[in-house]
Write a protein that binds this DNA or RNA. Structure first.
Lengths: 200, 200
DNA sequence: CGATTCTTTGAAAACAGTCAATCTGTGTGG
DNA sequence: CCACACAGATTGACTGTTTTCAAAGAATCG
């Protein structure tokens, strides 16, 4: 088994509570997709019919508003499931774009096959369920951050929660993710640097 | 069957795709809880171990930050499932408060019983799954609104999406939900009134 | 009624955004 | 290997939306 698939297998065993055999069965239905930096996994207007697991790399999901401005909805690194669950449920064209920020290895499966597996492998439903619960809980936490934090507090919270992201992702995308401008984020970084230097 | 339970039965048939008989079986495990205005369904620090269906009334879920300020996370009206899914999964004390804004009728079930029903009634897993998917999609949409809208745009979007809420809920709670101050929202309302008067 | 709670209004202050210029680093092609 | 282009990051001055603070006017409830 190639390394990309092994990552998913490990994920299924550790996070989904599967036996190695069950995990094999699930993994066998996935195909590997290599994405080079700047390539897309999903483009606005297309329908999302898959489940995708990030085995290696980093992607961003973003929207484009009426003024043509991009807004980063989320980052997806190893062991995440990027996609558009709205489009998946409804079959409607997606409003989201998903783009590789680095060279990526993605494991893909069509939704129909995925549903088959859910029927065949007991425990699959539970894992999917838990996945969505976690996603929802995380989204609520983020909403909470929008409600109570200033720009600086949002950034502090972000680097505490995702310490690896700032090193992998350009600043202006993080600013977009936080709902602030790149200039503001640059100034915030500056004050944080000064704090570090002062030994706070 | 009392009227409160009938609402849930109807929900299960229409939204969950159950037969009336299956729906009966599910409904039978729920108990009715009456909440008077200002009473709580969940208080910060308690563990949430239930699933709750709003048969009648309106509630708010909110957090209290370090400064003692309240932030409205969500409103729940008829046919919604308020609760703290984070606390439910992890078993950790909740950070949320859920309070009745009107006299309410809530249908409650313990999570353990709920899991039993999921095992017994086929299709239950799918419904729960779809519920969380919808919740997650809605949360993402809200995050998107935070990213691209001004205060006024957020309010316009809100009344368009939830036209019934403004009539049932005090202004300052809507302001909190939108992440703006009550004074700002009051001023926005003022300009909207003027627009209406001018016939825009 | 009196007492909350909710809403509105005004003026001043603060935070973040905009615009514009410059600086940095990286990679590509001559 | 250098020069150039380009994307990303920083800085400054200015603008503007939203917040804050304070006060007073509705509305609701016991």
């Amino acid at each position: 088994m190639c390394k990309a698939l092994e990552n998913l297998q490990r994920y299924l065993i550790n996070r989904g509570g599967f036996t190695p055999l069950e995990a094999d069965q699930v993994v066998a239905s996935f195909t590997t997709k290599v994405l080079r930096k700047h390539q897309s996994l999903l483009q606005q207007g297309d329908v999302w019919r898959y489940h995708a697991f990030v085995s290696k790399g980093c992607l961003r999901t973003y929207t484009v508003d009426e003024k043509g401005l991009e807004h980063v909805i989320s980052f997806s690194t190893e062991n995440w499931w990027p996609g558009d669950c709205e489009s998946l449920i409804s079959g409607a064209p997606s409003n989201y774009n998903i783009e590789a920020l680095e060279d990526c290895k993605i494991l893909l499966i069509h939704n129909e096959q995925f549903i088959d597996i859910c029927r065949q492998v007991p425990g699959m439903n539970n894992m999917v369920n838990a996945m969505y619960q976690r996603s929802f809980a995380a989204a609520q936490e983020r909403i909470n951050a929008f409600l109570q934090y200033t720009a600086e507090e949002k950034y502090r919270y972000f680097i505490k929660k995702y310490p690896a992201i700032p090193n992998r992702v350009p600043l202006h995308m993080i600013a977009s993710y936080l709902g602030i401008t790149k200039e503001t984020l640059s100034r915030i970084r500056n004050t944080l640097r000064k704090e570090m230097a002062a030994g706070v």
